[in-house]
């Protein structure tokens, strides 16, 4: 069970003069959801962007399925089977839902069509607004589109950046369910600030603080560790 699909080692990333990632190392294991948690500005999104090749790390190694993908361009990384859902969802608002999927599809074969069917089954709302401009969708629908779009290709790793951001609790519930289904098909690395969602889907966690990973372990352990939670996540023991 110790086969890591993705292994990041000592990632150092600068944005301008700012040293954002100061040595991030972690693994995403097969058949599991790995959650990166931490405060705003801790470097969670930067980590995903660095993995995706959108930000070049100045140092470090990223091994995916046994290959070093560090230094490859984002489109090469995407073609190796990594899906990415950015924090702002990256919806093409002017394009219809259908066109969003068209842009996302790398192949037009039966397997892709089959995956698309399953995605539409999972996110029923997308079918309803198939010909509507994606910009008109609600926040939750946009998130579903973003995730569905990323999964239309044959991917083995899905990177999702804060899917619950700005969504109503009931939609977060639906997302949790969806991600729990998705993890049957591919490995998921999730960035999440919403601890409820993180604990509901995550198997492993890594806490980031100031561009470093300060704690790692199984999610069950974190759920019970009030001291850790309050120190790094700002979650105090609920009194009620």
């Amino acid at each position: 069970m110790n086969d890591a699909v993705l292994k990041a080692d000592n990632l150092q990333t600068y944005i301008g003069h700012h040293h954002i990632l100061q040595g991030i190392s972690f693994e995403a294991r097969a058949d599991a959801v790995t959650v990166l948690i931490g405060r705003n500005g801790a470097g969670k999104s930067t980590t995903l962007k660095t993995l995706m090749g959108l930000l070049p790390p100045s140092e470090g190694v990223i091994v995916y399925n046994g290959m070093n993908i560090q230094g490859k361009r984002p489109y090469e990384i995407a073609r190796m089977g990594i899906g990415y859902v950015p924090e702002d969802m990256g919806i093409f608002a002017d394009l219809t839902v259908e066109e969003n999927f068209k842009v996302a599809k790398l192949k037009e074969d039966e397997a892709t069509a089959g995956r698309l069917d399953r995605i539409l089954e999972l996110f029923g709302a997308l079918g309803k607004f198939w010909h509507a401009p994606a910009g008109n969708l609600s926040g939750g629908q946009k998130q579903m589109l973003a995730i569905g779009r990323a999964m239309v290709n044959n991917i083995s790793l899905l990177l999702i950046d804060e899917p619950s951001k700005g969504l109503a609790p009931i939609i977060v519930e639906a997302l949790i369910e969806a991600i729990n289904q998705i993890k049957e098909e591919c490995v998921v690395v999730l960035v999440e600030q919403n601890f409820y969602m993180a604990s509901a889907v995550g198997d492993y966690f890594h806490i980031l603080d100031d561009g470093r990973i300060v704690h790692s372990g199984r999610m069950e352990a974190l759920v019970d560790d009030e001291e850790l939670k309050s120190r790094y996540l700002g979650i105090s023991k609920s009194k009620s």
Binding site: Y75, F92, R149
Partner: peptide, 17 residues
Amino acid sequence: LIVRAGVENRDMVQAMG
């Protein structure tokens, strides 16, 4: 479509391969 998508969000188009 890809060009139009790129006008909106270049990074995303790249991240889609």
